[in-house]
């Protein structure tokens, strides 16, 4: 009996130690995601002292129509982190895998107002909002946590550039468009925080855990 009591003392001590290190880890910088993209150092004068500040690349303002033909713009995404991708509804190759994987993201964060998904069609000629609506319905998506974006082709392709995703019309590619299956993770300040191959199961698990890390940034203190 004595022996057991002795042991449990150690147990308490050990668990206290473990809790302390875990807490350190959460507050430390080691758990933060990097900020991706170009950055610029700007100097500004504050109280007579020169300070160097870093300006991070941010996603520029946009305005598109969603699957309900309602306007969506950057302010619809400023209170949430979001995952974005570029696809088209008739894509025979990688898009079905990307959609299946984004459904996994939706399932994990369903109803969480801090998480959104934004899928841009790169074939706006065919994928009118009504076509996007049908696609969303068939995927079983309700509401607006997952928005589908439609707009002039040039605007969409410019957005792809800002997210650093390659997309172009190419009659030789499957379905007529060449593009990459990236999922881009964007924070509430419109900065890029991660890029993942949306067709790869391991990368998608990484995205899911990175999203938790990013959300934690907004919940510290």
């Amino acid at each position: 009996m004595k022996y057991i009591i002795n042991n449990s003392k150690w147990f308490y001590l050990l668990s206290a130690l473990m809790m302390a290190t875990a807490a350190c880890k959460q507050n430390g910088n080691s758990e933060k995601l990097p900020i991706l993209g170009k950055r610029e150092a700007v100097s500004k004068i504050v109280n007579g002292n020169e300070l160097i500040d870093t300006l991070y690349q941010t996603i520029p303002a946009f305005s598109f129509l969603n699957q309900d033909s309602t306007e969506i713009n950057q302010s619809d995404f400023s209170n949430s982190i979001y995952v974005t991708d570029f696809f088209f509804t008739t894509c025979p190759s990688i898009c079905p895998i990307m959609s299946r994987n984004l459904l996994q993201v939706l399932d994990k964060y369903r109803g969480n107002e801090e998480v959104k998904i934004l899928s841009h069609t790169i074939n706006p000629k065919y994928d009118r909002p009504s076509v996007l609506k049908k696609y969303a319905d068939k995927l079983g998506i309700e509401g607006n946590q997952w928005e589908f974006a439609w707009g002039p082709q040039a605007d969409i392709y410019k957005m792809a550039d800002s997210y650093m995703v390659f997309a172009k019309e190419d009659p030789n590619a499957p379905g007529g468009f060449e593009h990459q299956g990236w999922f881009i993770l964007v924070d509430k300040q419109a900065r890029i925080r991660g890029a993942y191959d949306g067709t790869d199961a391991d990368q998608v698990s990484k995205l899911l855990s990175d999203m938790d890390i990013l959300l934690a940034e907004y919940h510290e203190q």
Binding site: P96, R100, Y135, K138, L139
Partner: peptide, 15 residues
């Protein structure tokens, strides 16, 4: 597999 899934489960009402 991209459309019909690795377990033949399909995808929603798309596939």
């Amino acid at each position: 597999q991209n459309c019909h899934g690795s377990n033949g489960e399909g995808l929603g009402q798309l596939y």
